[in-house]
């Protein structure tokens, strides 16, 4: 073997050894990663994406002799869209749903935000967890039970009105029962404990030093809130509103128990869209069409979510110079 040959061989040996050296697996590159993710993936596949996929497909089925038949027909959607403003007037239901859900979500978020600000900045660290626990506690009682409780409170001869009669203010009687205001009260009570958690995480993560900086730079308390705390709560507030709005849009229990089905509102005595879906489900034999309606509700929720993502974008405005 000549020297040149020898060098070539060595170089080749090196060339061979380099790729194998590059294949060293870092601690993060392990089949364990896939293994750990597998149960979660399986769970989502079997209990979420699978049913959702089937559910959406089912909306395209047709009914023959009272039995759903697998198909890919737009007939259900055509029927629904032709009934938007006439007949069942689904558009009114959708409008009523939005009119109930969005103000309820905004009110719930505003209210919760104020409570969270009070807890984070007003309660000493020792008692913050306790305060939080007390705020979340209603979540552990049954939603249905809470709605019945509100019925007792809001009813024509309920707790509030009985109290008003007792103190001689009969003419001040409230008649909130079977209005969409009652629906919203039930919904707000339902979502508040969840929003507390979302907003507490947001507000308690704001660096206290930033508040000190702001005050030290000459900001009053109000200016500090407007220019530091509020902008830094933005993402949490948007998540909170969209989260609440989606829950409220999908709920029919409050609408039927407190709103009485077609509760009154500015829009009129119109049931919410989920209420319409439930009525159809109970009375109609066309299950695929009911499913198609529910799919429309899911799409509306996705639109709400998409809009909220737009609002979540960073607060910094470019080119403000």
């Amino acid at each position: 073997m000549t020297v040149a040959e020898h060098n070539t061989t060595t170089a080749m040996d090196n060339a061979v050894s380099v790729p194998s050296a590059a294949k060293v697996r870092t601690p993060n590159q392990s089949w364990l990663k896939e293994l750990c993710l597998a149960p979660a993936m399986a769970w989502y596949a079997v209990f979420f994406f699978g049913p959702l996929g089937f559910f959406m497909w089912f909306g395209f089925w047709t009914v023959e002799e009272y039995t759903p038949v697998a198909d890919f027909s737009l007939k259900n959607y055509r029927e629904i869209f032709s009934n938007l403003f006439v007949g069942s007037r689904y558009a009114w239901g959708i409008a009523q749903s939005l009119w109930v859900a969005l103000p309820a979500a905004i009110f719930a978020t505003t209210f919760t935000y104020l409570v969270v600000l009070a807890i984070v900045y007003g309660v000493s660290r020792r008692y913050q967890r306790l305060a939080l626990l007390l705020m979340v506690a209603p979540f552990w009682s049954s939603y249905l039970l809470r709605l019945y409780a509100w019925q007792i409170i809001l009813a024509r001869e309920g707790a509030i009105n009985s109290f008003l009669t007792t103190i001689g203010l009969r003419e001040w009687h409230i008649s909130l029962m079977y209005t969409q205001i009652a629906t919203r009260i039930g919904l707000i009570h339902y979502v508040t404990p969840i929003l507390i958690i979302i907003l507490y995480v947001t507000v308690s993560n704001i660096d206290r030093a930033l508040i000190d900086v702001s005050r030290n730079l000459g900001a009053t308390r109000l200016q500090t809130f407007r220019k530091v705390i509020l902008p830094l709560s933005r993402t949490g507030l948007v998540i909170s509103v969209s989260f609440a709005a989606i829950i409220c849009l999908g709920d029919f229990l409050s609408g039927s128990l407190l709103g009485g089905g077609g509760g009154t509102s500015l829009i009129g005595r119109v049931p919410t869209f989920p209420d319409m879906i439930m009525s159809e489900y109970a009375s109609s034999s066309n299950l695929p069409r009911t499913t198609a309606m529910a799919t429309i509700l899911v799409v509306i929720m996705l639109v709400v979510l998409a809009i909220s993502f737009r609002f979540m974008e960073p607060a910094t405005k470019g080119g403000r110079r």
């Binding site: 660096d207 030093a209 000190d212 702001s214 030290n216 730079l217 530091v228 830094l232 910094t316 110079r321």
Partner: peptide, 29 residues
Amino acid sequence: PIHKRPTRLVWQDYALFPHLNVFDNIAFG
């Protein structure tokens, strides 16, 4: 009151406003 004091503190870990860019941070006061 604190917001009218003539003393300014520069923080050890800077404590810059994360939601503002450099210009807006400087212009805050």
